[in-house]
């Protein structure tokens, strides 16, 4: 068992553990932090697979930008304390069991696939130079279209997030109305029947 294999198992264990912590933490801030840990381990896997470009991008985009955005929103809404109302216990169990079943089924289904090796630590397609060549030669159009996607996402985010121009009293009244409406509808929860 070489060093790469030891690294693989260690990273896999940390990834699974931190992923579990993401969904079990009560505090959303902890969830975000555990998720960042997961992303780091996944980046570690990318490094093991010699996909250096993706490893770096993963850290920059996911762990750096996106997760910071999440943290920022959580802080903004002041959700750091445990505000989540308890979900129905049976429903939680049902979800967990359903997920477990899916895992079981998938593992059982793919257990007998033929053995194919993937290379660790060698091979240079994941290097920036090679990926860049392919990207800007064969995938130039999707790349440019991706920029349009970003532009539209930006516009969308601004439009959605923009506060409508209203008088303050109206807005408060509106908010009240909406809130009571939602609460009125709340009792029809799933297993209350």
């Amino acid at each position: 068992m070489g060093i790469t294999q030891i690294l693989f198992w260690a990273l896999a264990a940390i990834a699974l553990f931190s992923a579990l912590m993401v969904i079990t933490s009560k505090n959303p801030v902890y969830s975000v932090l555990w998720l960042i840990v997961t992303f780091f381990t996944i980046s570690g896997h990318y490094l093991l697979l010699n996909a250096q470009f993706l490893a770096i991008v993963n850290i920059i985009v996911y762990a750096g930008a996106i997760m910071v955005l999440f943290l920022f929103v959580i802080m903004l809404m002041n959700l750091s304390k445990d505000t989540e109302p308890q979900k129905n216990k049976w429903l939680k169990l049902a979800g967990a069991v359903a997920g477990g079943c899916l895992l079981l089924v998938l593992v059982a289904a793919l257990r007998n696939t033929e053995t194919r090796m993937t290379e660790l630590g060698s091979g240079n397609i994941g290097l920036i130079q090679n990926l860049g060549n392919v990207l800007f030669k064969e995938y130039v159009v999707p790349f440019e279209i991706a920029s349009i996607l970003f532009l539209s996402a930006m516009v969308g985010a601004v439009v959605i997030g923009k506060r409508e121009k209203k008088r303050v009293e109206d807005e408060i009244a509106d908010a009240e109305v909406v809130k009571t409406e939602f609460h009125q509808n709340e009792p029809s929860a799933f297993l209350n029947r």
């Binding site: 992923a19 969830s31 999440f70 359903a98 997920g99």
Partner: peptide, 18 residues
């Protein structure tokens, strides 16, 4: 395993951000 953990999270949590 990671994917199923994500699914279970979606199924069991109520917080939209999580």
């Amino acid at each position: 395993a990671l994917f199923v953990i994500g699914i279970v999270g979606v199924l069991t949590r109520r917080n939209a951000i999580i």
